[in-house]
């Protein structure tokens, strides 16, 4: 499969690949990268906080099992239904929009730069599957932070922050970075959610779709070149992911 893709984009001519670095296309790549990086950063940051909140001592067990079960479902949840759920929430007639309006706070007036159909809106919707994915991926790593380590650290006189600085964060780092890459790829590849929210969103998957279906412009070769570019970005990410995964596995015995 992979080989087929490479040949195809390359084999026609290099002019398509060259075009990728030209004006509208390179913008689409930036748009995709921005959305992916922002949702991956926010998703991994909040994801680890929520996962830790559920796992740490003192939180009832059932919360944890509800959260992981729900995350297993929600991480698989995306596309058209997700987009609609957000339109119903924050769209012009959305439930939350209406709450605010009835409370005398018109979102579209007070906060005009936020629009569900803009880049920020798409990012907010992506978080709905990014967050659960992070929780699922990072929970085993957090479990791997053995309680004995913590006790050992405090017996040796370490303070809370010292435990995190010298034990917790170094142990978690490979898993965290691995999860970050997973989230990045997840957002980078997403098509249906963004398509349903805004078909004019300038990100690569939508551009490929438009070129391929000929909705706007019909140029399958350019679509193939764009697809090839996506493949390259994700392949690089994958190459970064594999060694991280190996390192992370060291502590999970």
């Amino acid at each position: 499969m992979v080989g087929a893709f490479q040949d195809k984009a390359n084999h026609a001519t290099f002019s398509n690949i060259h075009l990728l670095f030209q004006h509208p296309y390179v913008d689409a790549y930036w748009g995709s990268l921005r959305i992916s990086v922002i949702t991956a950063v926010a998703g991994s940051f909040f994801g680890i906080l929520v996962a830790y909140a559920a796992i740490r001592d003192g939180t009832p067990r059932w919360i944890r099992s509800v959260l992981t079960t729900f995350s297993g479902v929600a991480a698989n949840f995306g596309g058209i239904p997700l987009a609609f759920a957000f339109i119903a929430t924050l769209g012009p007639l959305g439930v939350v929009t209406t709450w605010f309006r009835n409370g005398g706070y018109d979102l579209s007036v007070r906060w005009p730069q936020f629009q569900l159909f803009s880049e920020r809106g798409v990012e907010l919707a992506y978080m709905y599957f990014q967050l659960p994915l992070m929780i699922l991926v990072i929970a085993p790593a957090l479990d791997g932070l053995k309680r004995e380590w913590r006790e050992a650290a405090s017996n040796l006189g370490a303070k809370g922050w010292q435990f995190w600085r010298y034990v917790g964060i170094p142990v978690l780092m490979p898993s965290f970075l691995g999860a970050f890459i997973l989230l990045f790829g997840n957002a980078f590849a997403a098509y249906a959610t963004a398509y349903s929210l805004n078909q004019g969103q300038n990100i690569v998957p939508i551009l490929i779709g438009n070129y391929y279906t000929g909705n706007v412009l019909d140029n399958p070769h350019l679509a193939q070149a764009l697809a090839f570019g996506m493949f390259v970005v994700l392949a690089v990410m994958m190459l970064l992911y594999i060694p991280l995964q190996r390192r992370a596995a060291r502590w999970s015995k």
Binding site: K8, F188, P205, G209, P220, A227, M230, L234, M238
Partner: peptide, 17 residues
């Protein structure tokens, strides 16, 4: 792991061709 590196939007372009 390939479908992770090759997302559906890329895969469909290749398959259609």
């Amino acid at each position: 792991l390939v479908p992770f590196v090759v997302p559906p939007i890329v895969m469909v372009v290749g398959l259609l061709r």
